[in-house]
Design a protein around this nucleic acid. Structure first.
Lengths: 378, 378
DNA sequence: CTAATAATTGAATCTGGCG
DNA sequence: TCGCCAGATTCAATTATTA
């Protein structure tokens, strides 16, 4: 069944129901100020950058900024643009959860101003990312380099926010097992993906490719998270968020864009939960103390541990510590001590003999984890 | 004949002789203020990045990363950094000819502030350019994207400066007859090019590759032009300028850097006029992450992959990993795991069905690469 | 001597949970 | 909020060492 409004994925009883998976029609600052503080997990913003677009770019006295024709006017425009930028970045920061992150995309016309403003407001830049376009528009006059990229800034709300979402292991696994770089290659939005009206005229001048949003959302959010887009346009963020099992909030002023985005998002079919799981790394695994391997009988007290080259030896004790001579401590401490280092991951450093070979105790931990899972599900 | 001071290429009688092809030792602003107004054709500036590093960073092998912790990179605050930036940008603008252009390089730590400041001062941005590094330092803690690029801003002195030098046709000819893009690929400066002292310690922490300077100089200056570098360091700009038949002015505070730069530039042999044609060329095929096939919709999440004999099956997930049961990892890891091997090339091992037949996912990658061939040029 | 293997290194704003 | 400590974490290229 087709509905005229956006689909509410969550229960009406939820206090979020009023704004989750909705498009709020209005000015981005006004609408963000209505949202609860600390309520969204991530923000993606594609703010206007053309200084002549008017609308948002008003002088303090509400007069419209005219076409740029001299240096002083230019300065005025930058001032106006900065005021606008600070206003929405400030409102966005209030809405963001303490460990939420913000993405902004822009070109050289505006991105330096946006970047400086967000630093001034206390955001902490995590990365700048360049979207390299496979098929950028040529420079027709041959007076400059072909403008073949746009810049994204990824920032946390505060400098000391350390627990932001970053699906490092999934990104690495999807990238031939090397970590994902800060330069991404995607085609611009065209073909069937590009929304057009009945006359074939593009519905929005700066529609972003869904692939770009998909990488952003997969990288920095978890299923069920809510993503706010204060410059929603024709709703790419909402469409991709819905498809990827995330919630969204869109803010958009123009009737026409709101209508198009609504229809577009209604047509999106979310992926099954099974396909949305994010590969976690070791950090996501439950913590297993070495002592529990001893308790479970996977390692007997008295067992001799060695490093991979059998240079160092340590004995396992019943309390889950290991000892070299009378010097007993954790697998990590002793591993560090014998090597003369500050730190050591004892799980990968120490091995047990299995016949002729050595096996890292980390594999015993994997075994213990499997048993725990079986026990929990039984 | 070897000389102790920099070589004067132009006649002593020239009024420029006092400062052309010289290294001026002193503060960048002070020294620029001594130069005649409107006297240089181009400026390349590699200012301090204002890195704000916490404690030590260790590699996984417990070795310490040699951080850029030099005094010259330390600033009290963003305000202090902005004041410094405005001061040198202003002095630089006075020295620049009306049709001269400015290049600045930076990272996300400083480039947004530099870009906003130069816009405020009346410079007009022509392009931002990204230097993609073939071999950047990894992100050791897996907390962010690998920082694989730096940003350059190319700007004219004024908005209405239309007659700046841009060797469009030469760049195009050197780039397989397609126009030069704003994303450039170069290795970092290492190996024999990297200047080191007697003990093999790098002479300067942030020496830039000559190839980068060569492209900048070939793109935006003419033979005989003079290029000013207010943060001369060990003189890469001077060395490349001399080699390419341009003049230079370097400003540098530290004795040691001045001495090294002088010796370095003395050893440079300028190219003959007819050798001043272009260098360039293509680089290796771009790495295509499996994730981008998923993001681009070439493989839908939920798709079943099999090996060529349909013995093994795995499901594609939205994060770009594939899963057998709940065991998810990269196409390579899962391929290895199901076969009980240490390693496996997932691109050739896994297939998708196309009607009755199977097609290796490597063919999908080829398809994706074809879309991306335009971007493969360095 | 060559070839294989190991060690080194580069502009880095690089941990997290528990008590 | 702070201290403690478990324990997770690297890519490409060059240079040094070993076989």
């Amino acid at each position: 069944m087709k509905r005229s409004g956006p689909v509410l994925v969550h229960s009406q009883a939820s206090p979020d129901a009023r704004w989750r998976n909705q498009i709020l029609q209005g000015h981005c600052v006004t609408e963000m100020e209505r949202l609860p503080a600390g309520s969204v997990d991530a923000i993606f913003a594609d703010p206007p950058y053309n200084l002549q677009l008017g609308g948002d770019l008003m002088r303090p006295d509400h007069s419209k900024v005219d076409a740029v024709d001299d240096a002083w006017d230019q300065f005025e425009s930058f001032q106006a643009y900065d005021a606008f930028t600070r206003a929405w970045l400030l409102a966005a920061r209030r809405v963001l959860k303490p460990n939420g992150t913000l993405w902004v995309i822009g070109s050289y016309h505006n991105i330096f101003r946006v970047g400086a403003s967000l630093q001034d407001l206390g955001y902490w830049i995590l990365n700048d990312v360049v979207w390299r376009k496979t098929n950028p528009m040529p420079n027709f006059r041959g007076k400059r380099f072909q403008n073949a990229h746009e810049t994204l800034i990824w920032a946390s709300r505060d400098q000391d926010a350390k627990n932001y979402t970053f699906n490092y292991d999934a990104l690495k696994a999807s990238n031939d097992d090397v970590q994902m770089r800060s330069d991404w290659l995607f085609p611009i939005c065209s073909g069937g993906e590009r929304l057009k009206d009945e006359d074939g005229v593009k519905a929005h001048p700066t529609q972003k490719p869904e692939a770009l949003l998909a990488r952003i959302i997969m990288a920095s959010t978890k299923p069920g998270d809510v993503i706010l887009d204060p410059f929603f346009g024709t709703g790419t963020t909402g469409a991709v968020a819905k498809r990827l099992g995330r919630d969204f909030v869109g803010i958009e002023r123009e009737d026409e864009y709101v209508r198009i985005a609504r229809d577009r998002i209604d047509d999106v079919e979310p992926l099954a939960d099974d396909e949305l799981k994010i590969m976690g790394g070791k950090r996501a695994e439950p913590r297993v103390p070495f002592a529990s391997l001893v308790e479970a009988g996977l390692v007997a007290p008295g067992t001799v541990l060695t490093d991979s080259k059998r240079r160092y030896r340590a004995r396992v004790r019943a309390d889950g510590t290991i000892a070299v001579g009378d010097d007993a401590a954790s697998i990590h401490r002793i591993g560090a001590r014998v090597q003369g280092l500050d730190a050591c991951n004892g799980w990968t450093f120490w091995h047990v003999s299995r016949g002729q070979n050595l096996m890292p105790i980390d594999e015993l931990r994997t075994l213990a984890r499997q048993r725990m899972t079986v026990a929990a599900t039984a």
